[in-house]
Design a protein around this nucleic acid. Sequence first.
RNA 1: GUGGGUGUAGCUCAGGUGGUUAGAGCGUCUGGUUGUGGCCCAGAAGGUCGGGGGUUCAAGUCUCCUCACUCACCCCA
Length: 422
Amino acid sequence: MTVRSIRGMNDILPHAVQAWRQLETQFRDICELHGYGEVRLPVVEKTELFHRTIGDTTDIVEKEMYSFVDKGGDALTLRPEGTAATARAFLEHNAGAEEPVTKWFYMGSMYRRERPARGRYRQFHQIGAECFGDPSPYADAELMALACAYLKSLGLHQLEVRINSLGSSSARTAYLSVLKEYFQAHRGSLSEDSLRRLESNPMRILDSKSPEDQALLAQAPRLSQYLSEEDTDHFKTVQSCMDSLGLAYVIDPHLVRGLDYYSRTLFEVHDCTDALGAQSAVCGGGRYDGLIPLLGGKPTPAVGFAMGLERLLALMPDSPSARTPTVFVVSRSPSARREALQISSNLRALGFSVDGDYRGTSVKSQMRRASKSGATWVVFATDGDQNVIEIKNMEQGEQHTVATEQLPQVISGQRPPNSSTE
RNA sequence: GUGGGUGUAGCUCAGGUGGUUAGAGCGUCUGGUUGUGGCCCAGAAGGUCGGGGGUUCAAGUCUCCUCACUCACCCCA
């Protein structure tokens, strides 16, 4: 048996990389338009970082992390997400002391030992943006605007932005106990999954898909009733900002997060087509004013989001591979291959993209490859006179003999080929 | 993690009730007259039928296990 790649960890071949690059460069551009700077952080962190930020009871930490002990005895983990490390770096470099507001973005591979499915892999790629130091609702709105601008720039339109507010941690604690009480009182009619969630993560019951739970959910106490006046004002301002920016959204009272450090604004962007199946969320984010203190920093407001590139990719129309040379060098005979190599090298030094075929196959075969490559010019290499050279325009089918020294100008279109042999 | 579906050439797929050298299209390669592409034509290469056990005179076809992919759930972005 030949060695195969790890389950859930995929190769990305040249024809696909084109689309990946588009996703990445587009994100860089949009982030920089919004005043965000790129950070590049390690793929491996101390396991403790994720225990402290994500929490010990979540599925991610409990059973999905790639954790190991290295030869020095340190407990390390392949990062399962990007926010924890970004916050760690923010604190480690004391970035908050240099500037009042720190706006960073990142892109990279993340690792989670989940069961692979469409749009979900064990090595997957996320892009994300985090803003530290600004508690205002305007920061939330700007961040969502960034996310929307990015998705729009990719040509994705069938999307829905869902927002909700979790309120401050005190409001949420109060709500949580009421909610727990409510579900306890009706535990007989809860689905099996939700019964489990009642112990591990009661808020999660709110976004249960089980039909058995729906009736109960409709009557469940609303988080919005437990928000403080400041929380409510904050959320209202977020909404009015979205309105004035012309960004459509729906308020989803059942939108929740399992993690404790989230506060106030929460948002997700979902795909409305069925292209992703059950994995319809393409972007998730929100405010996490409680995160930095978990890492030992002083209270620092923060908002951020992350998107999975595999899911975005699944929504993108197929783009043609763009590895198209402008010149294809054809060797008239096997002995002309040395000259073909020389011509290619000279043209490449001038910045032309050049391909060729040195296998010594027939001219016909080389021409077929030249045609398939999409090159606009074929240059014929021969053993003979090196002062002139024959070239063929593959779009018009015209063949010309030009002085070798004029070749660069002709193929770049700066000088018309003067003589024609066909 | 739970439950379903699928797994045959590089790719997309055919291969009723088990029976001789496993097929097609696309792609690749070589040709179709003396050195030149895209269309067309011909030929060739390429498969231990995901892997391993079992039943059988005989298994791509039945059975068990295993691996991979995929869908739903779970979880998440």
